[in-house]
Simulated scan of single mutants.
Amino acid sequence: MSTTSHPAPAAHAPQAPSLGRATLLVAEREITSQVRSKSFLISTAVLLLAILAGIVISAVVGQREPGETPVAVVSSVAGSVDGAPGLDVRDVADRAAAEEAVRSGEVDAAVVPGGEPLGVAVLALDDAPEAVVQALTAAPEVELLDPAPAEGGLRYLITFAFGLVFMTSVIGAGSMIAQNTVTEKQSRIVEILLSAVPARALLAGKILGNSVLALGQTAAIAAVAVLGLVVTGQDDVLTLIGMPMVWFVVFFAIGFVLLAAIFAASASLVSRVEDTGTVLQPAIWLTMVPYFLVVFFNDNELVLRIMSFVPFTAPVGMPVRLFLNEAAWWEPLVALVVLVAATLAVIAVAARIYERSVLRMGGRVAVREALARSADD
């Protein structure tokens, strides 16, 4: 009796994940490792508490009793402010003299003859003088000679906040991307990772995972800021920054990807954590420049306009211009298109550098060398 032997079925090798699936796996790894890190949780909590404390302190300071407000009063309506507390009254002859006193900065406001039914009006330069208005028996008509979207102190505070949040978030997350990249190279873990996923998927996953974390942190900051302003009764400030804050989150999301790609590509050029300082300096400076520009040039319309269209500074420059009502409706759309195009170009270059440097051990790899090594690929 003969028997027929059948060959055993061939074992199927596990199929490598697709580029998209591999990217998501790496991103998930980045997110879970970060959220389990005490340093990340503590730094985020401290940042949110600092923002909330700043809002509360500004509200308390704003509610303090002000000193006497210098105010010019035309003699014919001097009776309307007689005995009013908190005012340093200075008599002037007529409306022209009162307006000159306001424009020169000698007084904060002026009370002049006005139309019916009150018979008086208040002149001010760029903001309605609350102390003068409240001192009058009835709310008068307020005429602004040079209206502004925000007071000087509030203008500086909001522009400073946009720049600071962008700088701290990007440098914090970008440094983490760089540290993880170099640590994986130094410990040779990257060789194991690249045996399972392509280099582009590893880079994309790092950027995607940390972008999700940074965007979530920024959204949390925005939520805490809104909550703090509502609780402290600063609804007028919330009205001013509402739409600019939404645009800031949008620009931040794309601008972070651009800079994160630079951080990752820069870190792939070295094999030791000790060497990261030098290669990361350009990325850190690109992140710090928007902050310093809005701090020192927040009242310079030309500088802010240029900032709003340069990809590295647009995430701060454009929201600041929107807050100051200095941007037309189409400008953020154009700036966003420019930023997206620049981000795609930077990602393409960063991926090329990362692929050709991440497995090279030893000394620092020159950027020109990483981009030129096409014969071996």
Rank of each mutant, 00 (worst) to 15 (best):
E100Q: 14
M1V: 15
R29T: 10
L293E: 02
S187M: 02
P282N: 00
N180M: 15
P149C: 03
E274V: 02
V279C: 01
L336C: 05
D91T: 14
A264H: 05
T69H: 03
A98C: 07
S58L: 05
V295T: 12
M167C: 13
T168R: 03
G228R: 09
V61Q: 03
A264I: 06
E116V: 15
P9G: 12
I353K: 04
L136I: 08
V77R: 09
G255C: 03
A283V: 10
A121V: 09
S268P: 00
M176V: 14
L48R: 11
G83E: 01
F251Q: 05
I55A: 10
V92C: 03
I189F: 10
G216E: 13
E141Y: 09
V303C: 08
T183A: 15
G163A: 02
A314M: 12
Q234I: 02
A351L: 05
S5K: 03
S75H: 03
V212T: 15
D299R: 14
E116G: 14
L322V: 13
S75A: 15
V289Y: 04
L48M: 04
A101P: 00
D91K: 04
A109I: 13
G62E: 07
Q134R: 15
V338Q: 06
G205R: 13
L145Q: 06
V102E: 04
A50V: 13
P66S: 09
V71D: 07
S37Q: 05
H12Q: 15
R368E: 06
K38G: 08
D236E: 15
M361P: 00
S5M: 10
R364F: 09
F312R: 10
R21Q: 12
V102Y: 07
V77D: 00
L229T: 07
A16G: 05
D275P: 00
R272P: 04
F323P: 07
L125G: 06
V133G: 00
A178K: 12
S187F: 14
T239K: 14
T181V: 14
D235G: 15
A8W: 04
T313E: 05
T23G: 06
F252D: 13
A50C: 12
